[in-house]
């Protein structure tokens, strides 16, 4: 279990982190979201020991993290970095060795990853000859080659095509299924919603919402009331709360408050009600709400 506890970090008189804390259990996929400059990268760099915190602590299974623990982590920094002139396979293997793999094990792991990430044909190309997305795949392979005990990935999906997104999602799910805690940051909230067991929303250096996606939804209330009415006269909903939009010959009414039964009666009086129900808030809506 990876516990991040009360991290604080200041740059000059600017506070980047103001008591960030959350916990990721083994096998849990944790989505870390927040606006630009909210503090995601700073948090992850502190977890990896690349940056020192002013206060706070990161623990693994109850013990403060040490160098040897981190050496077994897989890390993908926000600023990608590879040896541009080194060949793809050679590079992945080299990082495997640096993380302590034996030569044969490093080679096997490299081959397996090249296969999974669709890089087999590019194995002997220099990294600089690859497109940005393919370089990104190599970067991921470098983070994954040594079968990490914890994965810390800063925006791993940015710049990938849909097929690569799926391939990476599969790899991450597999690793999580083996009991590895996975933290990744992303601005693609639909993706986070689809993949993650739990989500943390950070805003201006503080965690504003955090927990399993389902729980966050609950906390957000019963969700938005959505009513679809056909053949209604214009202006029928003037007295009701909420926003109305026209889609073809239908009116779609979204209400966040008010008496739903009263809304239903008015709608039935105005035209043919085709849909009436509460819609679960999307992560995007939860996010907007939380950081507002």
């Amino acid at each position: 279990m990876l516990e991040i506890d009360g991290l604080r970090k200041r740059y000059g008189d600017k506070t980047a982190l103001d008591g960030v804390g959350f916990t990721v259990r083994p096998g849990e996929m944790f989505g870390f979201v927040g606006a630009n400059g909210a503090g995601k990268t700073t948090t992850m760099r502190i977890v990896m020991g690349v940056l020192g915190a002013d206060s706070g602590e990161v623990r693994l299974d109850g013990r403060p993290l040490g160098y040897d623990d981190r050496r077994a982590f897989g890390y993908m920094p926000e600023e990608r970095g590879l040896y541009q002139k080194m060949k793809v396979a050679e590079q992945i293997e080299y990082f495997g060795r640096l993380h302590g793999l034996a030569p044969a094990a490093a080679r096997t792991a490299t081959d397996a990853l090249l296969e999974r990430l669709g890089l087999v044909e590019r194995r002997d190309d220099a990294v600089e000859a690859l497109s940005l997305g393919n370089q990104q795949r190599v970067q991921l392979a470098v983070a994954l080659v040594h079968e990490p005990t914890v994965l810390i990935l800063d925006e791993p999906f940015s710049g990938l095509d849909p097929l690569a997104v799926d391939a990476l999602a599969e790899v991450l799910k597999d690793r999580a299924a083996e009991g590895v805690p996975v933290i990744f940051s992303s601005h693609q909230l639909d993706l986070v919603e689809r993949l993650c067991d739990s989500v943390g929303i950070i805003s201006a250096g503080r965690m504003v919402a955090y927990g399993p996606v389902a729980e966050l939804r609950e906390r957000e209330g019963r969700g938005v009331l959505r009513v679809v009415v056909r053949d209604a006269a214009p202006g029928w909903a003037d007295g009701l709360p909420g926003r109305i939009a026209r889609e073809g010959d239908r009116d779609v009414l979204l209400c966040e408050e008010g008496d739903d039964q009263a809304v239903l009666r008015t709608a039935m009086g105005a035209g043919t009600v085709e849909h009436f129900g509460r819609r679960q808030p999307t992560l995007t809506e939860i996010f907007r709400e939380a950081v507002a």
Partner: peptide
């Protein structure tokens, strides 16, 4: 080269 390409950030999580 290592500092500029930021590769040092990954390197220093695997070697001292």
């Amino acid at each position: 080269e290592e500092k500029g390409s930021r590769i040092v950030e990954i390197l220093l999580t695997s070697v001292r």
